[in-house]
Computed example of a mutant assay.
Amino acid sequence: MIELKNVTKKFESKKKGHAILALKNVNLTVNQGEIFGVIGYSGAGKSTLVRCVNFLEKPSSGEVIVNGQTLGKLTNDQLRQARQNIGMIFQGFNLLKTANVYDNIAIPLKLTGIPASEIKARVEKYLNIVGLSDKKYVFPNQLSGGQKQRVAIARALSHEPDILLSDEATSALDPETTDSILNLLLKINREFGITILLITHEMHVIQKICDRVAVMENGEIIEQGNVIDVYSDPQTTTTERFVSSIFPSDIPNEIIEELAQRGPIIQLTFVGESADQPALSMLAKKFDIHSNILSGNIVQLKDRPFGKLTAHIQGTKAETDKALHYLIEQGVKVSEVKVNG
Rank of each mutant, 00 (worst) to 15 (best):
E257D: 12
A260I: 06
I266P: 11
P305Y: 00
L301T: 03
I246A: 05
I293G: 08
D288M: 12
N292P: 07
G272Q: 12
A279Y: 00
G307N: 02
Q235P: 08
G307D: 03
G263C: 10
D250V: 04
G272C: 06
A260Q: 15
D303M: 13
L283C: 11
Q261A: 13
S281R: 12
Q267M: 12
P264V: 07
K285I: 09
E240Q: 15
S281A: 14
T236S: 09
T236G: 05
A279V: 14
P248S: 02
A260C: 10
I255F: 00
E258C: 01
P278Y: 03
P264S: 09
M282S: 13
D288T: 14
I255Y: 00
S274E: 02
G263S: 06
E273T: 13
R262M: 09
E273V: 11
I256F: 00
F270E: 11
S281F: 06
N253S: 04
V271E: 09
V271Y: 06
A275H: 08
M282Q: 15
E258F: 00
D276F: 15
L259R: 10
I266E: 05
T269E: 04
A284S: 15
Q261E: 13
S245W: 05
G272L: 10
F287E: 13
A279S: 15
E254T: 09
S245D: 04
D303I: 13
L283K: 07
D303P: 05
L259S: 01
I251P: 02
I293N: 09
L259E: 07
V271P: 10
L259V: 03
N253R: 02
N292M: 09
V271H: 10
E258M: 05
G272N: 11
S249D: 06
P248I: 05
E273A: 14
K285A: 12
N297L: 01
S245F: 03
S295A: 15
E240F: 00
K286Q: 15
M282V: 13
I265E: 04
Q235T: 07
P305D: 00
T238Y: 04
I289E: 10
K302G: 04
N297P: 07
G307C: 02
P264A: 08
A260R: 15
G296I: 05
Q300E: 09
N297V: 08
E240D: 13
E257H: 08
T236Q: 11
N292K: 12
S274T: 14
K286G: 12
F306A: 06
F242K: 03
F306Y: 10
K286H: 14
R241A: 13
S244F: 02
K286I: 11
Q277M: 11
I256R: 02
T269Y: 07
I256G: 01
L283Y: 08
L259F: 06
G296T: 09
